[in-house]
Every structure is written in C-alpha cells, then in structure tokens.
Amino acid sequence: MHWLSRKRNILMMLIPTLMIYLVYMIIPIAIAIGYSFTKYTGIGKAKIVGFNNYMRLFRDHTFWIALKNTAVIFVIAFVLLMIGAFVVALLLNLNLKGKSFAQSLIFSPAVIAPIIVGILWVFILDPQIGLINAIIRSLGFGQGIKWIGGKTLTPVSVAIVYFWQQLGYLATIYLAGLKMIPVEIEEAVQIDGASVWQKLRYVTIPMMRSTISTVAILVITGTFKIFEIVQQLTNGGPNHISETLITYSYSATFTNGEYGYGMSLATVTFFISLVVIAIYFGLSKERGRKEVS
C-alpha cells in the first residue's frame, strides 16, 4: 500500500490514461476552439478572423432558435428523466411479479442505435404517415397535430423520444444506487415507523446523492449531444426551426463548409454545458450543506 500511495507512482500509473485523454479529448477540443477564431472552408489554410465568428453567432437568428430548442429539450428531458427514471427504479426495486421482464423491456430502447430510434419515431410522429395522427384521424378528431415539422412541437417531441430512449438506462443506474443502501438502515427506518414518503425523503434520496449527481451529469451532457434523433425526425428543418446547437454546428461545418463558424457554435455549446453542470453542482452542494446543518 505504501508503494501505491507515493505521488510519483500514482502519476506514473495515470500517465497512459492521461495520454489517451489528452490525445483524443483535450487536444481536439483545443484545436476546435482554435479553429473557431478562423475562417476555414476545410481546404487550404485557415484565416484568422479574431472574434468575428462569435460576433456573427450572436447576430444569427438560427443560433438563437437552436439555443431555445436545446433549452426546451434540456428542461423537459431533465425533469422527466430525473423523476421518471427514479420512480421506475423504485418500482423495479420492489419485489413485484414480472420484475425482470419489465426491467428488460424498459431497458431495451437503450440498446437501439439512436439513428434507428429516430427512424422508428418518424413513423409514430410524422403528421401524415405517423401512427398518432392516423389514430386521431380514425377517431374523427380532425387531421391531427404537427408533432414534428411544425413551428412549436418539434423540440418537445425530441425530448419525449430522448426520454423514451434513456429511461431504462438511467433507471438501471438508479437501481444500482438503491441496491447499495444497506438493508439494516432500511429495517431500522421501518422499525422507527417512518412512512414511505419519510423513508424516501430522509433516507433514500440523501443516500443516493452521488448516484443522482451521476445521472444528472449524464442527462445534461446527453441532451446537449442529441444529434441522430433530430437528424432523423426533421433534419433540423423545416428551415432550421428545429435545429439544436449540435445539429446546427454540424450543418454549418459540414453542409455549409464553414468550419470556423461551425467550431464557434461547438465551442459555445461546450461552454454552455459546462456552465449548466457547474450550476447543478453549485445548487446540489448548497442543498447538501443546508441538509447537514
């Protein structure tokens, strides 16, 4: 143990991982940030343009649409997933009949490739060929609703699809957290006569704090990375009204050939997600301090 606790040895053991992290994460991020200060078509040499791309970005109407859509998706997906996955995990933690089957069923969307999830939901949400509007029409409630492709509902639909895809995966993480709560504590709470709500409020949730944080980070980073679902459902359209930050960044970079501008979008997205994570940690730390005091 003494050998392991020496700083030099710890550093040496970390070097291979750090090298990989540096080469495949840090350096590409730094390069992307560097390109965000250039005008570059992907051919020849990049021309340094200072903060022009960032100034253009704040004047760009589509950027604000993409930001608003990303925010809508984030808020809906975050609330639904944090609560929904936790409720599902609590149910799966009970000794109910068919629990294993339900667990497999709930987890199954997580193993489907996001691109397939997108295709699948096109056949459910499409205003003309989609299942939901077909049911609405057959019941005689008019021509249906523009779940995707309209001006308002697309980000909500994307959030619902993402919720459907991630629910089982996040519930499984919560379930693992629930299983780690010592049985003795649960028995003691029961003997003390705590209600289900009191047990949840004062024992389960506080003891799951680190699991909840992990799930929160996964949801935050996940929603800022939703790409394939949007690509398949609307391709960011019509006319960019359903773009998210990441699909707009892709479109600017690879469809329009504006690598510098695309990288400025990617950089802003990166920093926004960092800020959201920092806010979440700030709030949860504050809450933890209050509970302790």
Partner: peptide, 10 residues
C-alpha cells in the same frame, strides 16, 4: 395553393 405535400417539411 396546396402545391406541395402536407408533410413536405418532414
């Protein structure tokens, strides 16, 4: 005038 499909956008 309705020249294009109602689901043209998607």
């Amino acid at each position: 005038a309705g020249a294009f499909p109602s689901n043209c956008a998607t």
